[in-house]
Design a protein around this nucleic acid. Structure first.
Length: 509
DNA sequence: ATCGGCTCGCGCAA
DNA sequence: TGCGCGAAGCCGAT
């Protein structure tokens, strides 16, 4: 018989540093299944959480059930976000159908209708494995689950290449984090999840518990596949779906296209807003439709990279550490340094979304300029509907509202202007968070907060000369951006025909 | 076109 | 104790 006092299942590829028990409840010997509650890593491949659950399933000889639920009551729930997540669920359903595991997609179709589902499944389970994600409502949801579940609940960190547990403190600059990575990352570089955790083991065939599915019916495939409209769901229907499709399969296509067609010119052209050489993977990373491990692995293969290419000495520099092409190094600085810097902050600071989390110099200088007159003041409605005097800013806002994304470089300018045009820095922060989380597919992510708080000084340094409103916080101007970037095509694409804002290179200041 | 100054905090060499 | 340096800046001088 199997020993139920095990802390870790045998034959499991998940490093101990990535696993944490969330409650004190024991394994339940009489449980009839192992439950993987998929919340952040919504994918069948390269998934540490799934690996852990599958290892338990094999060790305990109990079938594996995968619950992927989508609530309707979370902040900013909309057709846009639901559609993208459900695309991913449809792709997962198609994949898991051919495996021993039982996939349980659930869409909450009325407020709080899903309440009790997790607990009901956990009642049948020997233990529950779930994903660790350090931002948005997920930490709170997990803490609530920990209080009510009668069996062992484990969270598994499959977020990045560096385990969240590897650093206990936040970093003040990307430079400092890069130095840390260059010391610490080599030992984690090859601690990868299996590509397919279900295919590498013999698992018992699983069925969904009928009593549970009777009360909480699995999602209608027509709804997941987009053949049925979302109009009856209690979510915001005014934020419409975008043209792109979510899911691990779509993510993989984008990765292939990026590596094949864009990487070579990425370093040179990524700041040009219409060059279209970025990966576009950020929403897929956000919802866990693709793993950084898969991306890094593909990049290593493409670059024919070996471990001994790593530079032994590097002092936090952006280039030259990996020993890859310029495009690959620039991309890895985004994927690993910047992305994981944000995860580190959220994981180590509970107040990651609070104004007070800004560095002291930024708080002070913004306070010093709190009473400065604001030459331009716009209401949230004027900003949301892109009704400002600045046509470049309006174009960026329209791209966000219509397409659910905001170009990397322009999003900095976008935020700096919101700071200038708002009555207080706190109000500017509120507006940025609201618009970003409401409209951006990749919003509500640790990196959303990195990007937004960077506007206000996080990870940055003071810059002279001291200016009105921003004080010593780095200033950016639309006029200079117009000079530096080729924005003609961008303005044409996102201009407002009714204002004659088409093809014009105007943008005041 | 390029350069320095603006300004703070930190790691590291001395 | 001093020095170098930092997500993409800005501006004026040369």
């Amino acid at each position: 018989m199997h020993r139920m006092t095990l802390d870790h299942p045998p034959e499991c590829a998940v490093p101990a540093l990535r696993v944490q028990p969330v409650n004190d409840a024991p394994l339940c010997e009489t449980g009839s299944l192992v439950l993987y509650w998929m919340t952040a890593a919504r994918r069948p491949f390269w998934n540490f959480g799934l690996e852990r659950a599958a290892a338990w399933s094999a060790a305990l000889q109990k079938p594996l059930v995968i619950l992927e639920a989508l609530r309707s009551g979370y902040p900013w729930a909309s057709d846009r976000l639901h559609r993208f997540i459900m695309d991913g669920m449809a792709a997962n359903a198609r994949h898991f159908k051919n495996t021993a595991a039982a996939y349980y997609p659930y869409i909450e179709d009325a407020p709080d209708a899903g309440k009790g589902l997790l607990a009901a499944l956990a009642d049948e389970a020997a233990l529950v494995v779930t994903d660790d994600f350090p931002a948005f409502f997920l930490p709170r949801m997990l803490a609530a689950a920990a209080r009510i579940l009668p069996v062992r609940l484990e969270k598994v960190d499959g977020n990045g290449i560096l385990p969240l547990g590897a650093a206990q403190e936040p970093f003040k600059t990307a430079y400092a984090f890069r130095r840390f990575l260059q010391r610490s990352l080599p030992s984690h570089l090859f601690e990868r999840p299996p590509v397919d955790s279900l295919a590498v083991r013999e698992l018992m065939a699983a069925d969904l518990p009928a009593a549970v599915t009777k009360r909480w019916p699995p999602a209608d495939p027509d709804l997941l596949e987009g053949r049925r409209s979302l109009e009856r769901l209690p979510i915001d229907h005014r934020v419409e779906p975008v043209a792109q499709t979510g899911g691990w399969d779509e993510a993989r296509i984008r990765l292939d296209v990026f590596l094949e067609e864009k990487l070579a010119v990425y370093a040179e052209l990524r700041n040009q807003p219409t060059a279209d050489v970025t990966s576009g993977l950020s929403p897929y990373l956000h919802f866990g439709h693709i793993s950084s491990h898969e991306i890094l692995h593909a990049l290593m293969q493409q670059e024919e990279w070996f471990f001994d290419r790593l530079a032994g000495t590097s002092r936090g520099g952006k280039e030259g550490w990996w020993g890859m092409s310029a495009g690959a190094e620039a991309f890895l600085d985004q994927l690993i340094t910047w992305r994981e810097l944000g995860f580190n902050f959220c994981a180590t600071r509970k107040d990651y979304d609070q104004y007070e989390s800004l560095p002291p110099w930024a708080l002070k200088t913004l306070e010093d300029h709190a009473m400065d007159p604001r030459p331009y003041l716009y209401s949230p409605e004027q900003l949301e509907t892109a009704q400002t005097h600045d046509s470049l800013w309006n174009a960026a806002q329209r791209e966000l509202v219509r397409e659910g994304r905001l170009h990397n470089y322009l999003r900095m300018l976008w935020g700096k202007k919101i700071l200038e045009w708002s009555p207080t820095p706190r109000e500017a922060l509120r507006i940025m968070v609201e618009f970003n989380n409401k409209y951006a597919l990749d919003g509500r992510d640790p990196n959303s907060y990195s990007g937004i708080f960077w506007i206000l000084g996080r990870y940055d340094r003071p810059w002279g000369p001291e200016r009105p409103i921003l004080g010593k916080v780095r200033y950016m101007s639309s006029a200079n951006t117009l000079r530096k970037l080729k924005v003609q095509e961008y303005l044409k694409r996102h201009g407002n025909p009714q204002n004659g804002e088409v093809g014009g290179g105007r943008g005041e200041e």
